[in-house]
Simulated scan of single mutants.
Amino acid sequence: MQNRFMKWIVAALVTIVALPAPSWAAGYTQTKYPIVLVHGLFGFDRIGLVEYWYGIPAALRSDGARVYVAQVSATNSTEVRGEQLLSQVKQIIAATGAGKVNLIGHSHGGPTARYVASVRPDLVASVTSVGGVNKGSKVADILIGVAPDGSLSNAVLASITNGLSQFISFLSGGSGLPQNANAANVSLSTAGSLRFNQKHPYGVPTTSCGEGAYQARGVHYFSWSGAKPYTNALDIVDPALALTGLAFGFAKNDGLVSSCSSRLGRVIRDDYSMNHLDEVNQTIGLTNIFETNPVTLYRQQANRLRNLGL
């Protein structure tokens, strides 16, 4: 009996080994236009061996995508960051001759990408918002309430966060970019986001938790986000996101942004079992092992854009 069981196990293992490894079709991520990744608050391109978009650029390039990682101010207003991104988009288009780009923005990178699409829709094929702060964040609202502009607490907080932003920028090779933590916080607040959306409404849902226009002025809009602040016991950042997630009460959120606020254009999903950092495969790939790998979501989005001729 035991020998038959062992033979069955060996046969099963041989069958598994003999099966072809899962693979993606050649050109799966090969979009017509280059993909530009836009980081969020306190974001960067690369610091040493650590990428903000951990493992994502290489995964997209592996099957044909041309991928560029933008570097904008770690902290500043959406408009300032947007102008920085616009300058880089122009450079990428000039270098590639592509005519347009596909923008994928995480967190504050969502509104930053939307700004470029709003002021120069002719240069943008699509905007994909990942955990984007499209209708503000209650965490930013709380920070403004605790440390209002002009207060001593605000001055201390701004000094610390601006210093951290400069340090991040220096380490990632982006020294010289202006940092303004107060301006970033205002942009990410509910009131600041409302003012921004009045000027740049494209793709933003007109209802509290609906979908926005899938396409406006030739630009396609997409979004997805997580809804689980704590996902991996080994990730040292997860407890902090679980704490900030309390700001949203019973509303679905990823620890920093509510699911409803993240919605833009065609909503792929707003309830992945991911937190705000999982959405960019951080911290260094320590994400929810029971959820789709975040890298796969970016590959699927590239394929979605490819199939639309973008």
Rank of each mutant, 00 (worst) to 15 (best):
N180I: 05
N180P: 03
N180F: 00
A181E: 05
N182M: 12
N182H: 07
A184I: 00
N185T: 15
V186C: 00
V186E: 10
V186R: 05
S187W: 01
S187I: 07
L188P: 00
L188N: 08
L188K: 00
S189V: 04
T190N: 09
T190A: 07
G192F: 02
G192T: 09
G192S: 04
S193G: 09
S193W: 06
S193L: 08
L194E: 14
L194T: 15
F196T: 04
N197V: 02
Q198S: 13
H200C: 05
P201Y: 08
Y202C: 12
V204M: 03
V204A: 05
P205S: 09
T206W: 04
T206V: 15
T206F: 09
T206C: 08
T207D: 15
S208Y: 12
S208F: 08
S208D: 14
C209F: 08
C209H: 06
C209Q: 08
C209I: 01
G210P: 10
G210C: 12
E211F: 10
E211M: 13
E211R: 12
G212A: 02
G212S: 08
A213Q: 15
Y214V: 13
Y214M: 11
Y214N: 13
Y214T: 14
Q215N: 13
A216E: 14
R217M: 11
R217P: 00
G218S: 08
V219E: 06
V219S: 05
H220K: 13
F222E: 06
F222M: 11
F222Y: 15
F222R: 14
S223M: 03
W224A: 08
W224T: 00
W224R: 01
K228W: 01
K228R: 13
K228H: 09
K228M: 12
Y230R: 14
L234Y: 11
L234T: 09
L234F: 11
D235I: 02
V237Y: 07
D238M: 04
P239N: 10
L241Y: 08
L241E: 01
L243H: 07
L243I: 15
L246G: 02
L246W: 03
L246H: 07
L246C: 01
F248C: 04
F248W: 02
F248D: 06
G249Q: 02
F250K: 10
F250A: 06
F250S: 13
N253Y: 03
D254R: 04
D254L: 05
V257C: 01
